[in-house]
Design a protein around this nucleic acid. Structure first.
Lengths: 193, 193
DNA sequence: TCAGTCATGGCACGTCGTGTCATCACTATC
DNA sequence: GATAGTGATGACACGACGTGCCATGACTGA
């Protein structure tokens, strides 16, 4: 495990987020982060592929967890049923271990920097690809699989945004279900307006 | 207009796309691009904010065109009606002036490079933001506006992908309408599966 | 005690992107 | 036709990013 001072990775994440919020992402240099964490620049890039990744550590496993959850679901469920019944509980476990305060601070940093926003979009794109493959593995045709995956991720993304805007007040599963209900209402009402 | 040799911007775009396809985005340096275009490195960054932008020039105007089109639509149309009736014709004019061959080559370059894929996602995010604001300006509530905007962009994005995969065979408006129909079918069928 | 392993430090280097100033072609005005 | 202005380009220096390579030092196991 950790030799020297343990928790180097966590110290880097903490220092980076603090500095991003204090002076901005662009204005923060990697040497500044490593100095605050008591390490060197070379070590930073051994833990994170680039400066942005320090805010996205640990999220590489999400796609494979998505695939596992979908494989465990009853095969009788259609894609839309799977979304409406499985999305909320599955989403809840994604943020386990991260405090609401951390999530809010992290989101403030991301919102302030287009480069980080792009990385966030890539995360959702990877989630969508995993969902799409999961649907195909359940026998769903290509177009429907892609549509269902994109719809699920869109609902998830909007719900997380709303949930954080409300400081976590209605919990995430409830917010997701509200969002899905609003989406159903929007697409099912022949002439909304 | 253009002094010296006119069309510097176009020469840079052409040289960059060729080189990206020949040897990859990362392996292509800016001096290589400018050498082929007969210019210098400094000039490249006067035309494009960074190395990726050379493939996304001219798309900054899309959001404002979206806003203009939405403002011109009959106020009686609800958000979902506006999407199903207005998305296909509006989308057709976005690619005007670009040959199908160019679009296919450009997409091959983007698909091969995650950094370019991220930039592509940002483009759609900006389109969605413009649509969302347009819906709000028409009196739609925040959540519905966001949902409608994301759904429209998702349908547009999937349709464009399918359209290019089929080398433009059914034209883009037809592909969009097919995609929207599939989405309606997916979300409106109570138990699909 | 000794060898192996692994995170870290240190250094050099290529590329990206920017700030700054000089240059040169074209244009307008007198 | 001479002259000043405008705008795109060239040239140079520089800081930051990210990587390759090798050295070091602490911990583990025999």
């Amino acid at each position: 495990m950790g030799r020297w001072q343990p928790g180097a990775r966590e110290r880097l994440e903490q220092a980076a987020l603090d500095l991003f919020l204090e002076q901005g992402f662009t204005e923060t240099t990697v040497p500044q982060i490593t100095a605050r964490a008591g390490l060197t620049t070379r070590t930073f890039f051994r833990h994170f592929a680039d400066k942005r990744e320090v805010l996205f550590a640990g999220e590489e496993s999400v796609p494979e967890r998505v695939a596992r959850l979908m494989a465990q679901a009853p095969p009788s469920l259609g894609p839309m049923e799977l979304i409406t019944e499985g999305l909320a509980p599955a989403a809840a476990e994604i943020f386990q271990g991260r405090s609401l305060d951390y999530l809010l601070r992290r989101r403030a940093a991301i919102d302030a920097e287009p480069a980080l926003h792009e990385r966030e979009l890539r995360k959702f794109s990877l989630m969508s690809a995993a969902l799409e493959q999961g649907f195909r593995d359940r026998g769903v045709d290509d177009l429907t699989a892609q549509l269902a995956a994109e719809i699920a991720v869109t609902a998830f993304r909007i719900a997380v945004t709303r949930w954080l805007n409300q400081h976590g007040d209605p919990d995430l599963p409830a917010t997701i279900n509200q969002t899905l209900a609003a989406m159903r209402h929007l697409t099912n009402t022949p002439s909304l307006g």
